[in-house]
Design a binder for these strands. Structure first.
Length: 945
RNA sequence: CGUCGAUUAGCUCAGUGGAAGAGCACCCGGCCGAUAACCGGGAGGCGCUUGGAUCGAUACCAAGAUCGACGACCA
């Protein structure tokens, strides 16, 4: 790192009496936006990260495992927050005395990239091509994101990150699948998904769009078949007619062959209606829909009995055209907006239908699934086998009309789900999927996954603490994990399944390893080209490759296997010490990683979880393009600098939302300038100080300096504490107050006289410089994790001529000792500072009258009661320096009283004190006795200040 | 709708069951040897609203408001 040339001093007539003025090449203005990129290049070229690792090699390992961002789009400020927080944590652990590592990663598989490829290259590409193009696209995205992350000053193994799409990673992921399969967690079951017949696959929500569609809406009667139960439910001894129907309304007649139940709302009133139609003399309808329905069907009728929906629970009615019962199940989702207040339920073709049937104990094997993947009914379906469901719609209506169960049919236009690729209608369809069972006992006989995971949550430290109940609740309530996806850009669920039975091959475990070996060489593409016979020989004719890929959450969720124990074991350990992500990852990465690790390791892959909120604008609103309140990290770096962004992250309480706006950044930049200037003052006033030679022993320091060091030790304690709790905003706050109140507002202000006017190498000045040296060494260490650029810049200024891989502030630790004992210095000087407050206030009132300008023009007389008077008198003549006045007199008094008057003496040209002895030496008529002594004599003794 | 979190000066944050704090910003002044700096002084807060237990709450409890996170294949 290079420091800027010294700015030319303003031309001023040089006094013939020299002063020890501050001197440094360290510029007052950071000019960060311009200079930071050069430093990043320097760190990269010199391999700073690895130099630090070497320096820390003997320390205990501490691992922050990176949650991989998705390899798509430029980074936004949320990414920046996440990476900066991680960097601050890693660097703080480094300086706390650990060998803290950071291997960044990227999540590469999944739908967003698949969609990008589809947008760029069109639809319907063969899998192999999708995979090749996705791989290339992900690489491009990663390169861009990597540059932006590095620009933030984030240190890590950027030249060797982990990518979930690396063949070795893909192979290890298949091995992870093998482990959970071997443990017995994996099973096959039904699950409703959005299904496109033209794609022949499931659709993600993002692939579904709504368009108008015209269907046949039908009112369909389900005949009574449990008359006694029905009569009883309505409070009747018997039904007045043997014939009757409960009526449903649906816009999807094609689901009726799969009807297996009827849904009523438990709290709605249902009516038994007697009509004037001999073919259908009794009807059951929701009471509030009776008038509407009668009118609609052109019937007359009257309500002869009523009951709540729940009274009809489990009563069975007859399917409208097959000879089987359809029982009433209760469901809160039934509404009275349309139809009859009764909903027909085909569990294979509706989410609510599926869930309610399952809630009533229906097994997967009992769910009727007559619709095949191409949209045709299975050949075995009575009456309609082989027909496309859309062609079957009118035939089903005709059929019901002939059976006398059709009440009405009409065209009906509504908004309906369509495939965004094909613009064709999509249905919900129960499909076979692979699951990891939450309540499955593993083969070892250990606890279920849910129990293990809940115990793991308990064993984990959460920052902030409310993360624990949150994750706990999610684990406690979540359903089984659907591992399978019907996609192309993902790691294959490399199962071989029996052509007929769908059973897994008996040697599945070893087959998975065989596939993993091939994927390790050829990536997931190797699975595409694999012939079943290569693995199974003569068995091949009975088995097919499972076409599913793994949920991308399985990719990132197994990085503790594929990265910590896979691709980067040298840099890692298991479990990791920390995972750190946005609060959404309780449902995401924290969650998936926990489950996979509990299945594989029986414990969480992390010891600590740290969560941050999301970035909002000054008014607490989410950032969005439409609101125009987006702050781009790239832009902040290019204008204010990355250290400003880093300081903003550090200064904000990330446990909630992080507010960001131009004004907030401006305030942060103010804070930065304050810190930078304070640091600069320390640097400039120790420029002629060589710690190896000039350091004054702690017990030889003036008392004020020992007090300043006591304050510094206190600051270190507080900051280390706050860092340990990851409360960086507390660190920032403490340092800011330290710089403003303790240093700028008091210590440094007082010190200027001694620094500038005492002999350059005098004990008095060396004492001050010793304190400044320790303070500087401390501050640069405490700030280094946050203001990475600035602190390296300072370090290079302090130790010029060395490259960053030879000398970096990050080689240092917080064990730096600030010498001295606190004793009662803090209390003693707190009292003095309070008196000083009274003095400055008194001077201020004199100033308002125009009697004095500088406080040095003032003489102060303090009356004080004991023991305060003694405490003041103890400092003797040094007291005036504490108050920055020319003279102080202390008198006993009943209460504290400060009187200020202008000095009657001459101002010393050199030290600006007003003293009686100015001009006392004829050879030097314009300066005082102190200055004579400091320049030509033995110099002042400064015991206290 | 449900679960969770947030709400103290213009901004960022402290804090305590007993008369509201800091830094910065703002206003006024000083200095002119940290100078696109530095020092001093001042002004500024129905502590989101409404109830409740309490002698008494900003702090404890409950409801509401506003904002935010998550809610199943979407990383």
């Amino acid at each position: 790192m290079q420091t800027e040339p010294k700015a030319a001093k303003a031309e001023k007539p040089e006094s013939k009496y020299p002063l020890n003025l501050p001197d440094t090449p360290f510029p007052m203005r950071g000019d960060l936006a311009k200079r930071e990129p050069k430093w990043v290049d320097d760190w990269t070229q010199k391999k700073l990260y690895h130099a630090i690792r070497r320096a820390a090699a003997s320390r205990p390992r501490w691992v922050l495992h990176d949650g991989p961002p998705y390899a798509n789009n430029d980074i936004h400020v949320g990414h920046a927050v996440n990476k900066i927080l991680k960097d601050i944590v890693v660097k703080s652990k480094l300086m706390a005395g650990f060998d803290a590592t950071y291997v960044p990663g990227w999540d590469c598989h999944g739908m967003p990239i698949e969609i990008q490829i589809e947008k760029k290259f069109g639809k319907g590409l063969p899998a192999k091509e999708v995979q090749a193009k996705s791989r290339a696209y992900a690489h491009e995205q990663i390169e861009k994101q990597r540059r932006d992350f590095m620009r933030l000053g984030v240190l890590g193994e950027w030249e060797n990150p982990y990518l979930t799409m690396n063949p070795s990673n893909e192979a290890d992921e298949i091995r992870a699948l093998r482990k959970i399969y071997d443990a017995g967690y994996v099973f096959r079951g039904l699950k409703p998904v959005n299904w496109c017949f033209d794609c022949g696959s499931a659709l993600a929500e993002a692939e579904v769009e709504y368009q108008d569609k015209t269907d046949i809406a039908v009112d369909v009667g389900f005949a009574f078949r449990e008359h006694d139960k029905l009569a009883k439910a309505f409070g009747l001894a018997a039904l007045p007619h043997p014939t009757g129907f409960i009526v449903i309304w649906t816009t999807t007649p094609w689901t009726l062959p799969a009807n297996q139940a009827l849904n009523l709302h438990p709290d709605f009133d249902y009516a038994l209606v007697e009509t004037n139609d001999a073919a259908r003399p009794l009807l059951v309808l929701a009471k509030d829909r009776v008038a509407f329905c009668m009118d609609r069907w052109g019937l007359e009728g009257k309500v002869i009995a009523e009951c709540k929906g729940r009274a009809l629970e489990l009563i069975a009615f007859a399917h409208p055209f097959y000879d089987r019962p359809s029982p009433v199940y209760l469901g809160e989702y039934v509404t009275l907006d349309t139809g009859t207040g009764i909903v027909h339920s085909s569990p294979a073709y509706g989410v609510e239908d599926f869930l309610s049937c399952r809630a009533y104990g229906m097994k997967d094997a009992d769910v009727l699934t007559p619709v095949l993947g191409d949209g045709k009914y299975a050949a075995s379906l009575a009456e309609f086998g082989g027909l496309s469901i859309w062609d079957a719609n009118p035939k089903i209506v005709e059929h019901m009309a002939s059976k006398g169960t059709l009440f009405k049919a009409e065209k009906f236009q509504h908004s309906y789900m369509h495939c965004w690729r094909h613009r064709t209608p999509v249905i919900y369809r129960a499909t076979n999927q692979w699951f990891a069972g939450m309540d499955v006992k593993p083969k070892t006989g250990a606890s279920s996954l849910r129990e293990t995971a809940l115990a793991a949550v308990e064993a984990t430290q959460f920052f902030p603490a409310w993360g624990k109940p949150r994750l706990h609740a999610m684990i406690a309530n979540r359903p089984d994990w659907t591992l399978s996806r019907q996609r192309q850009w993902g790691v294959p669920m490399a199962f071989l399944v029996h052509r007929e039975t769908g059973e897994l091959h008996p040697r599945t475990s070893e087959l998975l390893e065989a596939v993993a070996k091939r994927v390790e060489q050829g990536g997931i593409e190797a699975w595409q080209t694999l012939e079943v016979s290569e693995l199974l020989g003569s068995d091949a004719k009975d088995y097919v490759k499972n076409p599913d890929t793994l949920d991308v959450w399985f990719d990132s969720g197994t990085t503790h296997e594929t990265v910590l124990r896979g691709s980067h074991p040298e840099q890692s350990k298991f479990p990791a010490d920390m995972y750190l992500e946005g609060s959404d990852q309780h449902r995401g990465w924290f969650h998936s990683s926990l489950l996979t690790s509990c299945m594989i390791n029986g414990r969480a892959p992390y010891n600590e979880l740290l969560t941050h909120g999301f970035v909002v604008d000054q008014n607490g609103r989410k950032m969005s393009k439409s609101l125009g309140n987006v702050v781009a990290p790239q832009k902040v770096c290019d204008t204010l600098g990355a250290d400003i962004l880093r300081l903003w992250v550090a200064a904000t309480d990330y446990s909630g939302e992080l507010a960001l706006s131009d004004e907030i950044l401006k305030r942060v930049a103010d804070t930065y300038r304050r810190m930078r200037n304070t640091l600069r003052f320390l640097i400039a006033n120790t420029a002629d100080f060589d710690a190896s030679k000039d350091l004054v022993a702690a017990d030889q320091l003036s008392e004020l300096d020992r007090y300043a060091l006591a304050l510094t030790r206190k600051l270190v304690r507080e900051c280390r504490d706050a860092y340990a709790r990851y409360e960086f905003h507390a660190v920032t706050q403490k340092i800011q107050v330290f710089c403003s109140e303790d240093l700028g507002g008091f210590y440094l202000d007082v010190l200027k006289d001694r620094l500038y006017t005492c002999g350059a190498t005098s004990p008095a000045r060396r004492s001050a410089q010793t304190a400044l040296h320790h303070i500087l060494q401390t501050l640069v260490r405490m700030l280094a994790p946050i203001l990475s650029f600035t602190c390296e810049e300072i370090w290079a200024t302090l130790y010029p001529g060395k490259t960053v891989d030879e000398s970096s502030v990050l080689f240092e630790t917080w064990d730096y000792v600030v010498p001295g004992e606190d004793g009662n210095l803090l209390e003693t000087w707190q009292t003095l500072r309070e008196v000083r407050g009274s003095v400055t206030k008194s001077i201020e009132s004199l100033r308002e009258q125009g009697t004095v300008g500088s406080s040095l023009q003032a003489n102060v007389v303090i009356s004080a009661p004991e023991p305060l008077a003694a405490a003041l008198l103890r400092l003797g003549d040094d007291l005036k320096f504490v108050f920055i006045t020319s003279r102080v007199e202390v008198k006993p008094g009943s209460e504290l009283n400060v009187e200020v008057s202008p000095s009657a003496h001459q101002k010393c040209e050199r030290c600006w004190h007003y003293r009686a002895d100015v001009g006392g030496n004829a050879a030097h008529p314009s300066i005082c006795g102190r200055c004579i002594s400091n320049l030509y004599g033995d110099g002042e003794q400064r015991v206290y200040a």
